[in-house]
Design a binder for these strands. Sequence first.
RNA 1: GUCCAGAUAGUGUAGGGGACUAUCAUGGGGCCCUGUCGAGGCCCCGACCCGGGUCCGAAUCCCGGUCUGGACGCCA
Length: 449
Amino acid sequence: MIIMSLKALRTHFTGEINPEADNGQTVTLSGWAHEIRDLGGITFLVLRDRTGRAQVTILKKKVDPELLETVKRMSRESVITVTGTIKAEPKAPNGYELMPESITVVTVAESPLPMDTTGKVDAELDTRLDNRFMDLRREEQTAVFVIRDTVQAAIRDFFRENKFVETTTSKIVAAATEGGTDLFPISYFDREAFLNQSPQLFKQMLMSAGLDRVYEIGPIFRAEEHDTRKHLNEATSIDIEMSFADHEDVMELLENMIVYIYEQVVEKCQKSLAVLEKELQIPKLPFNKYTYEQVLDIINNEIPEIEDKMQFGDDIGTQAEHLFGEYVFNKTGESHYFIIDWPTETKPFYAMPYEDRPEISKSFDMMHRMMELSSGAQRIHQYDLLVERIEAKGLNPDGFDFYLKPFRFGMPPHAGFGVGAERLIMTMLELDNIREAVLFPRDRKRLSP
RNA sequence: GUCCAGAUAGUGUAGGGGACUAUCAUGGGGCCCUGUCGAGGCCCCGACCCGGGUCCGAAUCCCGGUCUGGACGCCA
């Protein structure tokens, strides 16, 4: 069942009203006073809620003068409740207007407002984030998070359908184990602890636990002092791990997940997409795959903008990543693709090396033409090899007891990946800045709100 | 972390030694207006990031600070 609002405050959302079917009906709407346009004999009050806007039309000659006074004194962005009759009206936005019987100001909004909500005057991202509660009242911002809700619901549908168990693992960990990134230290009673950079090690332990297929959508924390449009210090990771599977299996799972998400958003979010003026192109299956060495080859031979020749083992820098993404897009028309078979040395210790060519690993990155969206691999499930790889990375296996023990008592072969949820939203909706995909972003400089 | 750019009413901007009593829009206040939908018209209100310096004179030039945006690095 759906829990309804108190009838005195809301019988409908604005978006639920059908001009023809509901014509003549008395309804109660609650929301914010978006705009008030006083033309003299006629005054238009625009009420906004999560689903859209409704025009309340007040005719001077036909309403109680006190009601008109209430509207004239009302400040923009005050919370209001309006009860009135629906009138189908082609001249009104959305094809209907509300002829009010009563209008109540529930809470008064102060003036001036910290930013404009109507789209008339831009605000800088910093101003918007400082006043995020008000920024989110703008329909474009509401749309992003309505779509994000659909994305997260689609992910849950998809994995449940594929027999995955949703898990939640601890975000507080004892040691900076995985390497590769800086962690946030925190105080844990009388000990030092850290905010977890990734659920990776927990997911793998759950493979030994026999849960077989797990996924988690949760926060990850990185203390990197980067300052870019595509980095956050607190991000949301869509993390999965799958037993009795290899990297090829999870790549297939991943590309199918992405396509399912896009399909669901196209199916369920037309209104929000229209607000954002976006038409989604659903990626084609299967995604194109390029080996790391093919990528180097193409960069070295077909992308003259990169002057320094790349060698095996080099990282693919931002410029090369962008140019290669463009190259793939021009060639195939697709934004998403895989880079596979990375050098073992550039990937984390748990990535499985190929038996016949141990210098490369059964690893992959799933790319959007603008950035990396996901990375994954078949994992090492053999205890001795894992210890060897930990040591080869210059890490001390003694710090990994809790993680290594399951590998000594029955660990199935397994593979998995992690996807940056914000990057997925950002690339899908072509947002300029990843912060727009997070309600309350945490970056190098921002700790509130 | 490196490099580049920037900070002017609540918001977004113009102005780069004197004409600045600082532009425009939005907003707020007032008046007029019965079909607005970025409503319109008239009047009013509201700002040069902080600290030093140069100069007869600084929003404007110089130095330091703080904050912000972007690119790169590192990373997802």
